[in-house]
Design a protein around this nucleic acid. Structure first.
Lengths: 196, 196
DNA sequence: TATCTTTGTTTAACGGTGTTAAATAGTTTA
DNA sequence: TAAACTATTTAACACCGTTAAACAAAGATA
């Protein structure tokens, strides 16, 4: 019964077609512009068929969010591997984070709720949160204070706040100049790193 | 012809009724839950009447945003007047900013695009931007470097990034503990202030 | 092979949205 | 009193997410 296989592959394919169609539409018209009927149009079906593959519209966004986290993670790891010095690794990773946000604006908005409703930090796969990628490096830099989980958390969120805040400002408003962004970013990162 | 006056006053009142009804609904059901028909219901009219007072739904949100900026400004000035020492003033103002965000979550979301679409930084009345409130103080603290407008701008956005970023994280996710928030906030603010 | 069952897909509909045009009621002016 | 104007509503349009019923195609069963 190889036909069963083929049919399963086809189903898997339309499912992924729905996702990439959604992704495409969002890139063109923004999250506000996404509708089930548009997706259906793109994949050359009618709207209700989508419910064979997803519970509802939100489930589609959820899936895209998860894909986003996966990609972000890959980029962060790649950045980490670009050096062996913890301070340099941290900087490279935050810069990669920055780059990810602007290479995938819409996805980032979905993931972190800038201009969007769905935002689901909780969707990040448990075992590979950015937090778990960053903190070990920070720990090695902190040495003495490294034992205190509270301070670690606090410092992580200080990094996170400034980077995410700067991203939000750029994503939502008219944006600052590239030089100033870069200046603030590196300045803040090294500042926090030194304060560890 | 006092009736003309009365009628004008009435129109002004329904206009403001629309705004406060919108505000109320938003506080109860979030921005997603706001609809013209709900507003109309609240003010005991039918939906199309709203178009006599506002161009469209977006115009209502715009107005609320502007009101938000006005209130924020008042709070910032009040905070500034609580001290004469620039460093203390800066801290008090950023803390006031923080407090404003959480006392007016929905409005803040509208103003700065956390979880919302309308966000319009450009709506801040030109002559009373937070920027113009913060930078003079920073200038006095910077003394020598104070002349360089670029560095001033950069430092302002460093403040802004970390505060807004931290707010976003709290507004959008499940939120950190109050102590950690307070710790990060004050830590970051004094850190940046010292770096001036 | 003929019937039954299952699966994939579409059509039609519901209640909701923002928005517009036409109809109506109420008030002011000539 | 008649005409003009203004306030307000009714009805409609095109869209939205979602659901239930109808239908077509395929597979399994007898």
């Amino acid at each position: 019964m190889g036909s069963k296989d083929r049919i399963l592959r086809q189903k898997e394919e339309t499912r992924s077609n729905i996702l990439s169609a959604a992704c495409q539409i969002v890139k063109e018209d923004g999250w506000q512009g996404l509708s089930l009927r548009k997706i259906a149009d793109a994949i050359e079906y009618t709207a209700p068929i989508i419910y064979e593959y997803f519970d509802n519209k939100e489930a589609i966004l959820k899936e895209l969010t998860i894909q986003g986290y996966r990609l972000l993670n890959k980029e962060l790891i790649k950045a980490k591997d670009s050096s062996t010095d913890p301070a340099q690794q941290l900087e490279a990773m935050w810069l990669a984070y920055w780059k990810f946000a602007f290479s995938n604006k819409e996805t980032y908005q979905l993931m972190f709720g800038v201009e969007m409703t769905t935002c689901q930090m909780g969707l990040c796969p448990e075992e590979e949160t950015p937090y778990k990628l960053f903190t070990p490096l920070m720990k090695t830099l902190m040495k003495d204070k490294g034992k205190d989980e509270d301070i670690l958390c606090q410092k992580y969120y200080t990094y996170y706040s400034v980077v995410h805040g700067l991203i939000s400002i750029n994503l939502v408003g008219s944006g600052l100049s590239d030089e100033i962004n870069q200046q603030i970013l590196k300045d803040a990162i090294t500042g926090i790193t030194l304060s560890l």
